[in-house]
Amino acid sequence: MNGPAAEWDAALAERRFLIQQPVGGGKAVFPPRAFAPGTGAGLEWVEASGNGTIYSATWIQRKPPEPPYNVVLVDLAEGARLMGRVEGVTPETLSIGMAVKARIIGGETPMIVFDPVEQAHG
């Protein structure tokens, strides 16, 4: 039987983004664990909504002409935080507080990235 990290990997390979929630409710847990950190409560897998907000962001510079790439921290709607990357943005358009949505990319080594969510104006 696999540990929680391997179970998470297996789900991601099936293009599913899982997170854990304490049985009976509470803030979501990521990275996966065998029990809830701090309390030891049981955890159950749930599908992540993929909705999140940028908590912080940095642009890592590369030797020109390679453009910089971003590394962000995302607060998921369910309450967990994870590292990620936002696609299709520039240092001018990526901002802390921006709404993003998760997407799974990659074939044999899938990973989660984020896209900006168009905000309704008005």
Binding site: S56, A57, I60, V71, M83, I96
Partner: peptide, 19 residues
């Protein structure tokens, strides 16, 4: 996500502190 270790982690703290 290829963060520079440890530099980018401190950069994320700095960016948030500034914000």
């Amino acid at each position: 996500y290829n963060p520079m270790y440890p530099l980018s982690f401190y950069a994320l703290a700095a960016a948030r502190h500034m914000h």
